[in-house]
Amino acid sequence: MIEVKDISKHYGRKVVLDGVDLQFPIGKITSLIGSNGAGKSTLLSIVSRLLAQDGGVVMVDGKNVTDYKNKVLAQRLSILKQSNHVRLKLTVRELVSFGRFPYSQDKLTDEDNEKVDRAIHFLDLEDIKDAYIDELSGGQKQRAYMAMVVAQDTDYVLLDEPLNNLDMKHSVQTMKTLRRLADEWKKTIIIVLHDINFASHYSDYIVALKDGKVKYCDTTDNIINEKVLEDVFDIKISVTEFNSKKVCNYFM
């Protein structure tokens, strides 16, 4: 389990995270929501040791992340950041193969290759697996990076706005993939989402951040509530039921 205890972060005098306490249940999808600048990406970067916090600790399976060997942690926890751009001559399959680096470095075994192929299949990349990533569309690139994280095959998967740039079909497909990873493979997934309906449909728990603080942290059903959402986003949102699933409408 990932536990976040009293995390704080500030840039100069500006407080970005303030006493964040959270626990992310195993085998579940937890969505992080909140306005731009609420601190979602910062929290994810701290949990994944990309950024040093100013206070508090992050525990993974009961052990402080800073006490892990880099390689061992990379086999347990993976992160995909909000924006990724490289200008390398790298094919999709080569990029996805990097997901196996924590296990086999550059000498891939048969098992590694199998996992790479499965990840490519999962993200629907078979027909572009030999294309260079700097020649792909934004959404295709995003999916290639997702496949790399899937190939990394870690218990904990942190994703910062993975639906960025994806069309509707691939957004739904990606969320279904994540659902399968959680349900069948017992992966613990923490995901930043901006579309509240995707959060509502596919996540088990929702954490709402506002101004660097955890405003709400509860089951999806309890968060998808007009009062709560208005409080988080400061706009009017109406929640209706449709086929026994809650749908939010914020075009008002």
Partner: peptide
């Protein structure tokens, strides 16, 4: 070459 964040993510 994948950048700092990816390098750390991959256990370097």
């Amino acid at each position: 070459a994948l950048g700092r964040d990816q390098a750390i993510n991959l256990g370097l």
